[in-house]
Design a binder for these strands. Structure first.
Lengths: 140, 140
DNA sequence: ATGGTATTTGCAATAGAGTTGCAATAAGGT
DNA sequence: ACCTTATTGCAACTCTATTGCAAATACCAT
C-alpha cells in the first residue's frame, strides 16, 4: 500500500492526506492508462465519489510537485494526462491515432544523443519528450 | 519567391491568394523562430498590417492542410507554433526553459528505433515527436 | 475594365482546458 | 474534543482556439 508512504511525503511538506487525494491516488494506482483530469473526474463520478473537477486539477498538481505523478502532454490531444510514477523508470509512449490507446515503451534511447546535442548546440539538456503514434493492432 | 508557387497550390484546392495570406507567409518566410498565432498577430499589428487573430488561425490551418507549414506543440508551452516547411527536411527542436529560444536539431535518430518499436508493440508507426529542453548558452 | 459569384474576412459569440478568490469544511496535532 | 491551518467546492475568470454570419474581396468570364 502506497498510501502511508505518500501520507508521510504530504505531511513533510505541510500537507494532509484527504478523502479526495486518496480517491485520486487509488484510481491512478488501479488504472493502466494515463488519465486526463476529466477522465479522473468522470470515473470518480461513476463510482459515486463526489469530487470537483477543480480539486482533481489541484490534486494532480500536488502529486506532481511531490514527484509521485508524471504529466504527459501527448501530441494533438489538447489536454494533459497523468500517471503514477511509483517505482517505474523513465519511459515513453505510443498512441493509437484511431482508438487513442496508449502503450508504454519501456526504453529510452536518448542518452548518447543528448551528449551529441549538448556538443552541437551548447545547450545544457535538462529534459526531453519522445512520443510515437500510429495504428494499434486492433485498428490497423 | 514562393508566392506564385503557393498561389497555384491554393487555386488547385479552390482557394485564393489574399492580402492576409501573403502577409502571414512573408512573415514566416523571414522569421527563423517558429511562431505562435498570437506572435504572428502581434508582429503583423506592429507592422501596421490589419489582420484578425481568427484569420491568423484560419490561415495557418490552410497552410498546414497544403503541407506548407508544420505545427509544433512544444511541451509546457500551452499554445502551438508554426514554421514554414519550404524545402526543409524533417527535424526536431530544443527549447530554452528560461528565455524560450528554440533551436533546430538537424537530425532525426529514430529510424532504427521505429522498427524496433513496431516489432515490440505490433503498432504501425505513423508519426513521432521528439523535443529537448534545457538552458541555452546565454541562460546557463 | 466590369460584373458575378464563391471564397475569405472580421466581429461576436462560443467551446474547452485550466486557474484563482473566497467562504465553508475537514484533517490532524495537542 | 478542540483549535489551527490546509483543503474543498463553487463561481468567476483566463487563455487558446473554433464557429456562425454578414460584409468585403479575389478572380474568372465577359
Amino acid at each position: 500500500m502506497l498510501e502511508s508512504a505518500i501520507s508521510q511525503g504530504l505531511r513533510a511538506t505541510g500537507r494532509r492526506m484527504t478523502r479526495t487525494r486518496k480517491a485520486v491516488l487509488a484510481l491512478l494506482e488501479r488504472t493502466h492508462q494515463p488519465l486526463s483530469a476529466t477522465d479522473i473526474y468522470s470515473q470518480l463520478q461513476e463510482e459515486h465519489i463526489a469530487i470537483d473537477l477543480v480539486t482533481v486539477y489541484r490534486t494532480v498538481n500536488v502529486l506532481k510537485e511531490l514527484g509521485l505523478v508524471a504529466q504527459l502532454d501527448l501530441h494533438h490531444e489538447g489536454q494533459s494526462r497523468y500517471e503514477l510514477k511509483e517505482g517505474r523508470t523513465h519511459h515513453h509512449h505510443i498512441r493509437c491515432q484511431i482508438c487513442g490507446k496508449i502503450v508504454d515503451l519501456l526504453l529510452c534511447p536518448l542518452k548518447k544523443l543528448t551528449k551529441l546535442i549538448e556538443e552541437r548546440t551548447k545547450f545544457v539538456v535538462d529534459d526531453h519528450t519522445l512520443e510515437f503514434s500510429g495504428f494499434c493492432p486492433k485498428c490497423q
